[in-house]
Nucleic acid binder design. Sequence first.
DNA 1: GCGATCAGCGGCACG
DNA 2: CGTGCCGTTGATCGC
Lengths: 253, 253
Amino acid sequence: MESLQNPPKDKAMEVLSKAIAESRFFTIVGRCEVDYRGRASSKLGEGERMLMVKEDRSLTVHKKDRHAPVNYQRAGCELSVSCEGEAIKLTSKNAGEVLSARFSGIKFIGVFQMEDDEDLSLVGKEKDLSSLVQAEPHLIEPGLVPLEMEKSIRTGGIDVYARDKEGNLVVVELKRRAAGLDAVTQLKRYVGEIRRLHKEKVRGILCAPSLTPNAREMLASEGLEFIPLDPSIEHMEQGRVKLIKSQKRIDQF
Amino acid sequence: MESLQNPPKDKAMEVLSKAIAESRFFTIVGRCEVDYRGRASSKLGEGERMLMVKEDRSLTVHKKDRHAPVNYQRAGCELSVSCEGEAIKLTSKNAGEVLSARFSGIKFIGVFQMEDDEDLSLVGKEKDLSSLVQAEPHLIEPGLVPLEMEKSIRTGGIDVYARDKEGNLVVVELKRRAAGLDAVTQLKRYVGEIRRLHKEKVRGILCAPSLTPNAREMLASEGLEFIPLDPSIEHMEQGRVKLIKSQKRIDQF
DNA sequence: GCGATCAGCGGCACG
DNA sequence: CGTGCCGTTGATCGC
């Protein structure tokens, strides 16, 4: 680990060159301007920011606020550092994209070695909701029998493919969050696809905590159904999902 | 600016408390475990990472690689720091979400003051493409007359609303990147809406650099059209867009 | 404030 | 590799 405050230019060049050569994690804090050109083109005038380079040679430029970086470069880029008069310029090239940060003053350089073998484990994604529904399909509807989860068809993937107690095919689209028009168009597409393939009655059910008004209207006009489902993280962790009784279901015939 | 290497626990507590109280930008590098609970729930076992807090009290936790943070909290959270035996625990609460990072060892603390008045200016968004089309509608089709840009209807916004040289209404959906099924469903929805309102012939045109096979098929089956358009950043900056001649247009009648 | 869409979206999983 | 879609998506703009 190495940390420098207000390093002279030569020392800064030396430390940065070494950090780049050794693929280290390092940060620079200082006054800079940043240019980017690739899928889009951006210019950031002079100001003080923190630039971060990680061991995979991904690069981010951070302003003093906003959690998201103001500029970035994806992992695997080719890094170089050079002098431009009294300034130090760091350039990153990657797949037709170029980002350069020209530092007119460097207040801090930190080079860090981080031992880390642990990866994030995260619960609460749509996949987890899907598993719960597979374990307890009656939460969607009594007598529902799942045939296949994440069934992939030409035009996407069906979250739950099932038959109801009448023997009808059922396509279920699950959403962790409030469903909008996009969710309904997805479901509609899947139902259409299955209907073309099977020439029998196919029901489409959207399961989500709630539905926007436009989505509700589109769903109704397409003869699709809505089942309110509360996928709160507590239920996920406890391994169950709760039906919200207060909200009306939409049932079409 | 303050920078500490391997600070004793008391000093670390003092510096962090002050940085929090004064809403400073600061980073901590050290061995920690991170827990998050909110919209989802995550656990990150012990390892060395960099934690970053910005002046807007947004928080990110960075592993040694991956440009995106492994954990984060949005701006405006309530921060606190406390001792847990020999460890230092930083907790962030925000809108029903809690993130805590328990540091068993701190290798570095940096508190930075960053003067920055300049904001990013970025060219190459869909809006820029839209402006070009407005200036040169003949790029889409000779004789096309734009009536309205970003025309907002109940169910979204139409990029370009126009009439062709025959007097037919035209709905144009622009995409900067390769268009997929979502782009076609969007266009289809807008065209349907306009047809319901006007009871006359309405054409739908998708303008994008390319089209996925499924999207092409859906477009054709809906009687919609495709115009290949190259929105490369060079053209944007030069203030013009180029039609790609090599790709075949899809024209339905 | 909700709703819909864009984003230099990024990332994953499946064909 | 492309295609589709989820994401603790975030950010913006319009109603």
